[in-house]
Design a protein around this nucleic acid. Sequence first.
DNA 1: CGGCAATTTGACTATCCTCAACAGGGGTGG
DNA 2: CCACCCCTGTTGAGGATAGTCAAATTGCCG
Lengths: 226, 226
Amino acid sequence: MVRNRAICSALDGTELEALNAIGRERKLSPGESLFWEGEDSVIVANVLDGVLKLASNTEDGREQIVGIVYPSDFIGRPFDGTSSHGISALTDARVCVFNRSDFDRFAAEHPQLEHKLLERTLGELDRTRRWMLLLGRKSASEKVSSFLLEVFERMGVTKGCELRFDDAPITLELPFSRQQIADILGLTIETVSRQFTRLKAAGIIDLPSRRGLRVLDRAALEAEAG
Amino acid sequence: MVRNRAICSALDGTELEALNAIGRERKLSPGESLFWEGEDSVIVANVLDGVLKLASNTEDGREQIVGIVYPSDFIGRPFDGTSSHGISALTDARVCVFNRSDFDRFAAEHPQLEHKLLERTLGELDRTRRWMLLLGRKSASEKVSSFLLEVFERMGVTKGCELRFDDAPITLELPFSRQQIADILGLTIETVSRQFTRLKAAGIIDLPSRRGLRVLDRAALEAEAG
DNA sequence: CGGCAATTTGACTATCCTCAACAGGGGTGG
DNA sequence: CCACCCCTGTTGAGGATAGTCAAATTGCCG
C-alpha cells in the first residue's frame, strides 16, 4: 500500500524489480539515526513504515525539527552529497535504503520516477513554507493548535482513511514526545505543556495518556490556530 | 548569463527556441504582484533579473516571507494548480512567464529539464529548512547576523563573482526595506532596527545609507550568528 | 511496588513586542 | 536652489509573552 503512494508507483513490474535489486530494507528503533547532520549523505531512502524526523541543530545544542517523514515519503538528497540536517526515527520504522549513486543512475534512466520525485519535492517545499509562517509569526497557542490539526490530518491520511471529526472523537497516539513537539514548534517543553493543559481545561482536547490525544472540539481548535 | 544557471541550461538550441516560443517576458515594478496567495497559479516563471519575495500571510495581516528569489531561479508550482503563497517583486524585475499547462507539457517531453528543476527544488528545500532553524531557535541578534551573512553570499554569487570579505569592505545595496527584513526573520521592524544600530555601534557593520550596508568585521558577524 | 524519566506546575526573568514620538533624507513644488 | 512634506527608519518607555530554573507529580516499566 506504500507502493501506491510512493514514487515507485511510477514504475511497472520489471522496473520495480530492478529498483528493488539495488535497495535493501532496514529497520530502525526510536531515536536511531539514519544519518547525521553534516555527514556526507551517501544514501537515500523510502519510508515503508513508521515516522522519522529531520532536524537541524545549532552549535550550542538547540534543535529545530525541520521535517517529519511518514510512510511513502522519500528521504535524502539525490544528485548531491551534502545534507544539511540529520534524520532519525521517532517510532519503530522500516525504510528501503539505496546507495545514492545507484539511485542517481537508476533515476537518470527512469524519467517517470524523477517526475514523481519532483512532484513530491514540490509538495514538501510548499508544506515546509507553510510551516515557516507558523514558526515566524504565530503565538504559542496558535502554534500548538495548528500543530494538532496538522498532525490529525497527516495521521489520518497515512492511515488510509479520512478521520471524521464530527463522529465520536478518535483517540490518537502521537508519535512525538513533548520535547519533540517543542522542537517542531520552536518553543520550550514547558510552554508546550502549559498550552496542552490550557486546551484540556478549556474542554477542547483530552489527554487520556502521556502521548494520547483526543480532539473534542475541532472548531475551537481551528479558531485558536489563527 | 542567466541561461547558464537557470534550468534551461539543460536544453540545446532547438529546444530552447521551442521553450521561448511558449514563454513571454514580463516586467515588474517593486511591490507589484506576480500572483497572490491562494489564487490558482496558472503560470510558472523564470527570473531573468531582479529580486522577488514569496510570502504567506495570516488572516489578521501578519506576514512571513518564506522565500527570496534571485535571477535564474524558478518560481511557481508546476503540475498542481494550488499555490500557498503570493509572489511579488522587491526590485524592478524581469521574468519569463509560462502558461502552466504549456510548461507542464513541455517538461513532460524534456526529462533533462525536469531533472534540472528537481535539483533546483531539492536545493531550495534544503535552504528553506536551514532557514527554519533560524526562525524557530535563534535570537534576534543571531537572526540579523545570519541574515546579513546569507544576503552577502547570495548577492555575491548572483553578481557572478565571489565577494572577498578580506579585501576592502564592499558596500552592498540591500533589496529589502527594514519591514521586509523583519518579515523575513520573524521579528518586528523595531527589533531589526535596534539590532542594526547595535551592530553599527559595535563597529561590525556600517550603514552608509538607508539600504546600504558594509560589513567591516565578518568574523564578529559570524560569531554573532550562532 | 519502586525507580526513573517524562511531564507538569510554579515563581521569576529576559527578550521581544507594542505604542508613541522623533529624526532624517529624498523628492517635489515653489 | 531651497523649503517643505512624507515616508521610512530610529529611539524610548512600558508591558506581555515565552523562556529559565527549580520542584513536584505522574505515568510507565520492570
